[in-house]
Design a protein around this nucleic acid. Structure first.
Lengths: 237, 237
DNA sequence: TAGTGGTCTAGACCACAGC
DNA sequence: CTGTGGTCTAGACCACTAG
């Protein structure tokens, strides 16, 4: 217990106070100067602990006002969202992608599609991810051709669009929405289940800087796939 | 662009190389000493950038072998899992919890329940979270009475067990599993939907140190609730 | 055994925002 | 104005491990 690094001890001390409820949201945490004296260490050490807590979303740091417990402290977990080829191969299954539909079209009236297109046109791609030739997930994707013109030359039957984008277009921002949905007729047929079957839905939007790159919606048959998330901003360490 | 802190520039430089695929998993990243010379800064600054990347799971740091790109780099997202009362009130709805069932029982033969019980007995609680008196989520929970004997005295009709635990028992570890499932008869009745309706499922296990505290399974009717996750280990900042 | 990361120090200057 | 955090320096010692 005692042989842990000091900054880690400081961090877990404060973390414990927050998670236990001893320190409530909005409560002030001792300043770096005060913590220096409490633990008898230098400011960098204290700073490392507080920065970590800030990164994890447990505290909010304000100049002059000091460090306070964040509003919804235990909301942040680290989520593991692998790309599908890696995930399937990790399970020891063979991965295959089947292209179902590919079309260039104008954005619809939907405001989100307008933003994604950025004044240009969109590439629509529908396909199925197969694990050992069994449907694993179906996918609908929109790609902004203004942002990624090169994808028109890609052979998306040979390489799934997600992998192609990953190899060619670095994204800097991504956002996922995770929910459940009943399979529609088309999705059900692709997944080999009855229409209305429960599915896990993952929607992902990615950006490069301010430019919207792509939007993708993936459906997984209930039970075939689950996401795992654990508390703690630290992964490997 | 240029006015960003140096450690942040170093970080985003490397991050960009990884996300763009220029640096593939397993590739070596310059050592701290080399980066010091490249950027003309001190080691602490380089270290801050590399530590951040390590925390985010983008790189793995090894003594002697140096820092390398992690195996599945872009898998880590920060997930927002609020507790339900907060989430519902944030939407401007009134929250209410309805206790449906409460029982003390021995762990079943299931290995997981055995571990949770830790040699003792379990408290089983079933209830519904209501938003504006409409079913929002149903919940089944097991609590280890060996770890949390005090919960027997709690009035779980007045306060949902999740909130009670949050106020009384600090947890240090938590793990979530997120999937989809078709509603069973009991859950469907509680949620006011047809059996078989698609539901989002969240299972959470929490520990305090090595002691398993509780297991909870929450079901949300499809479309009523979605989880959001974004890339980047940093939250507020 | 030498290279690498892990940790820590004792300073420093600056920007910002509440007082 | 002043306390606070943000950033950075130029060192230091240690532990680990791949070569």
């Amino acid at each position: 217990m005692k042989d842990k690094p000091l900054h880690e001890r400081i961090r877990s001390d404060i973390e414990g106070q927050i998670l236990s409820g001893a320190a409530m949201p909005g409560d002030k945490i001792p300043s770096e100067l005060e913590l220096m004296e409490i633990y008898g260490c230098s400011r960098m050490t204290v700073n490392k602990a507080l920065s970590w807590l800030s990164n994890a979303g447990l505290v909010q740091r304000n100049k002059r006002a000091g460090t306070v417990v964040a509003e919804r402290p235990n909301a942040l977990m680290v989520l593991d969202i692998p790309n599908l080829p890696s995930e399937i191969e990790r399970r020891g299954q063979t991965y295959r992608y089947q292209l179902v539909e590919r079309a260039v079209r104008q954005p619809s009236g939907d405001a989100e599609e307008q933003r994604l297109a950025g004044g240009g046109t969109l590439l629509f791609v529908r396909g199925v991810h197969l694990a050992d030739d069994q449907p694993f997930a179906c996918e609908e994707r929109l790609v902004s051709l203004a942002a990624v013109p090169g994808i028109l030359e890609a052979d998306l039957a040979a390489e799934p669009p997600g992998s192609w984008l990953l190899r060619h277009i670095p994204w800097t921002e991504a956002e996922n929405r995770i929910g459940a949905v009943a399979a529609g007729d088309g999705s059900a047929r692709l997944l080999g289940v009855e229409p209305g079957a429960a599915c896990l839905k993952i929607e992902r939007r990615t950006w490069r800087g301010d430019e919207h790159i792509t939007f993708v919606r993936q459906l997984f048959v209930a039970g075939k796939y689950e996401l795992a998330a654990r508390f703690g901003a630290v992964s490997g360490r």
